[in-house]
C-alpha cells in the first residue's frame, strides 16, 4: 500500500461542519452538515436515497445514520438523529459551526431508476421518516419522473412526528398526497387522523394501481408485518415492496460481520430489501 492509498483508504472519514441544527421532537434533532473539503462534498454528494453514512466522534465511537437529504440538492447533507446512546449524546453537545468526521455513503439505497414512471406508496412510522424523507424530497425534486406519490406517516403522538411541516408543505404544494396519523393525541389538538398507520390505507386503497406501483416502508420492526399485509391485500407484487432495515454495524463495508442476515450483509446488500428478500432470508424482520 503506497502513501496515497493510505491517505484515501476505505475507512477514511472526512471533516464536516454543522450548518444548522434544530429539534424535530423532544428526542430527535435535525443536523445539516457540509464537508469542509468541497471536492469531498461533490464526490459524496452523489448518494442514493436510502443510503447511510457513518459518523465518527473520537473518544466515543462510530455509528451509522440514515441520510435524510436528497442527492438532488448536493451542497449539504441532512440527518435526523434520535438521542439514544453515547454517540448521539456526544452529537447533541455539538453547536452550529462545530466539526466532526463522516465516512460513506454506504449501502445499496433505493433503485430510483426502476421506480421511474410508477406510483409510489411510501409508508413511514416514527423514526422511519428520516431515511424516507430522502426519497420523498427526491420524488418532489424530480416530480415528472413519478406518477401519484402517496405518503402515509404515523407516529406515537403529535410530539413524536418528525418533519411534519416539511411533509405538509409538500402536500399543500400538491407534490405528493400526505396522510398523517398518531396513535394517541394526549393534548387533543391533533388536526389529522388518529389510529395506527395501516388505517391510512383506507384513504388511498381505491385509487391504487397495483400494476404500476412501488411501495416503500420504514419504521419500527413491529410495523412491517402489518403494513406488508395491507400492501399484499392491494396486490402489490412482492418484488415491488421495498423496506429499509436497521442492524448493528461497526464497519459499513462487509468486514465486521455484525449486520449479516443469511447470506447478505445489511451494509452492502441492504439496508434496502424487497419483500421477496424478506421471505427468502428468514431473519430480516
Amino acid at each position: 500500500m503506497n502513501n496515497k492509498e493510505r491517505k484515501n483508504h476505505q475507512y477514511k472519514a472526512h471533516s464536516a461542519e454543522i450548518l444548522d441544527l434544530k429539534d424535530l421532537s423532544y428526542d430527535t434533532r435535525y443536523f445539516k452538515v457540509k464537508f469542509v473539503d468541497p471536492n469531498i462534498q461533490e464526490k459524496l454528494g452523489e448518494y442514493k436515497p436510502g443510503q447511510f453514512a457513518i459518523f465518527s466522534i473520537p473518544g466515543v465511537g462510530e455509528a451509522p445514520f440514515s441520510i435524510s437529504s436528497t442527492p438532488t440538492r448536493q451542497s449539504f447533507l441532512e440527518f435526523g438523529i434520535r438521542k439514544v446512546g453515547s454517540i448521539t449524546e456526544a452529537l447533541y453537545k455539538l453547536k452550529i459551526g462545530d466539526k466532526f468526521d463522516i465516512r460513506g455513503p454506504y449501502g445499496n439505497g433505493f433503485e430510483m431508476d426502476k421506480m421511474k414512471d410508477h406510483d409510489l406508496i411510501i409508508v413511514s412510522g416514527g423514526l422511519g421518516a428520516v431515511p424516507l424523507r430522502s426519497l420523498l424530497l427526491y420524488a418532489c425534486d424530480k416530480r415528472e419522473d413519478f406518477k401519484n406519490v402517496y405518503f402515509l406517516n404515523g407516529a406515537r403522538t403529535p410530539e413524536d412526528m418528525l418533519f411534519r411541516e416539511d411533509f405538509m408543505a409538500m402536500h399543500q404544494r400538491e407534490m405528493l398526497e400526505t396522510h398523517l396519523t398518531v396513535d394517541e393525541d394526549p393534548k387533543g389538538d391533533w388536526p389529522y387522523h388518529i389510529g395506527v398507520v395501516t388505517k391510512l390505507f383506507e384513504k388511498i386503497a381505491d385509487r391504487v394501481n397495483n400494476k404500476n406501483t412501488y411501495a416503500i416502508m420504514c419504521g419500527p420492526p413491529i410495523m412491517y408485518k402489518f403494513v406488508i399485509k395491507e400492501l399484499l391485500k392491494l396486490k402489490i407484487p412482492k418484488e415491488k415492496i421495498f423496506m429499509t432495515l436497521e442492524r448493528r454495524m461497526k464497519c459499513g463495508q462487509g468486514h465486521c460481520g455484525h449486520c449479516a442476515i443469511g447470506g447478505v450483509y445489511t451494509c452492502l446488500d441492504g439496508p434496502v430489501f424487497t419483500y421477496w428478500d424478506i421471505e427468502r432470508l428468514k431473519e430480516l424482520i
Binding site: M1, E5, R6, H9, Q10, Y11, Q253, G254, H255, L268
Partner: peptide
C-alpha cells in the same frame, strides 16, 4: 472477505 470486494487497509 477483506480484499476481494472493499479493501480493508489494516488487513
Amino acid at each position: 472477505l477483506f480484499l476481494d470486494n472493499i479493501k480493508d487497509p489494516y488487513y
